[in-house]
Amino acid sequence: MSEFTPMASLLGGVLIGLSTVILRVFTGKTAGISGIVGATLRGAVERWRLAFIGGMVVGGLVVLASSSAAIAFSLDRSWPTLVVAGLLIGYGTQLGGGCTSGHGVCGISRGSGRSLVATCVFMATAMLTVAAMRLLGGGVA
């Protein structure tokens, strides 16, 4: 059972919104994580992308230092499931041109119809996947 945390989640969202809008206004770039990582792996290595990823890692260390309960792989999954899921996330975000940040936050914020469609689609298939796990295996935790 997961605890309902509307205020913390809203505040976290506010920080994410500030991050995406600051990057957009001051650099003209989109804070889409699959785009930043994917472009770097494709060979389009740019200093701002590496700096953004570096900032994420440092931010992760700050989160870990302040509360190890806030950042942990808190699920029971077999390694084949982890591998398959990772492959789908990696391939899917590149084919679809974005993920939760690029489409879900930045795209929707600038009124992109493509991003709205993509977000509805990945939300729907993610919810269906969890529902299917419930039906087939019983638990989802």
Partner: peptide
């Protein structure tokens, strides 16, 4: 700027609960 935005982004994810797959 990108470094600061990445940092802020990660703090937001941590505070919001997005860093807990459960």
């Amino acid at each position: 700027i990108a470094f600061a935005c990445g940092l802020l982004f990660a703090l937001g994810l941590g505070l919001s609960g997005m860093t807990l797959p459960s």
